[in-house]
Amino acid sequence: MLELIDLTKTYQGRGRTVTALDRLSLQVDAGELVCVVGPSGCGKTTLLRCVAGLLPYEGQVRVAGRPVTGPPEHTAVVFQEYGRSLFPWLTVRQNVELPLKEKGLDRARRTELVTESLEAVGLAGAHDAHPWQLSGGMQQRVAIARAVAYEPSLLLMDEPFAAVDAQTRADLEDLILRLWQRLEMTVLFITHDIDEAVYLGRRVIVLSASPTTVLEDLKIDLPAERDQLTTRSLPRFAELRGHVYAQIQRTKQ
């Protein structure tokens, strides 16, 4: 589904050149849920923007077999700056609905998807609010609802739960797992939370510090059915978490 071969991204600034990604290679099969962790500033957002066709790059990026030159079809993104990704002049409902309109869905189907996705993120009562009337966490959930209502085959998420409380975060994690299983989409999930990466991911990719490559591609051999309480208290969970933690510590040296 997703293939990165020797992906390199260099930012040219005035007098400052940053090699954010350095010959990074990665494969994600269709229907996989892969989490990416790495130290702050290592290039996670850069990686995601290259895959989303929003940045020029060197090397190869292919989505569903096609080289990425612009935003690939059937792809949705939840940006790290989720608040800025919402249209301030539209209501919550219109924000979620707009991409569906552009997709050419009929009104009945759109209403169904909007209602369903807003309910799923716990915003059933906020249809007619404007984004600026919502808290940061609520805005983030609107961005998530918009992405899942789009029914993408590839969903890219950049620290999507950073602004919500622990309880909502757990709910949203389980929501993503449910949607992922139901819609059979491929998910690339960026997070700085190691627990979250191990809980959600079928694989966890650990990135090195800049210039960034894949430090480790770790298979998460936990039972397929995840549950906030039982999964997190498994000894294997603690082992995996400890392993990823140690890896990330290593990147800092």
């Binding site: 929003l54 935003p71 940006f79 990704s85 789009y150």
Partner: peptide
């Protein structure tokens, strides 16, 4: 125009007309 908003439009195929005039209004 906000860069993230412009990226969002590109991604979801939202026509530029919708973004540009509203955003600059």
């Amino acid at each position: 125009i906000d860069e993230v908003l412009a990226d969002t439009c590109k991604l979801y195929g939202v026509r530029l007309r919708h973004l540009v005039l509203r955003s600059a209004s």
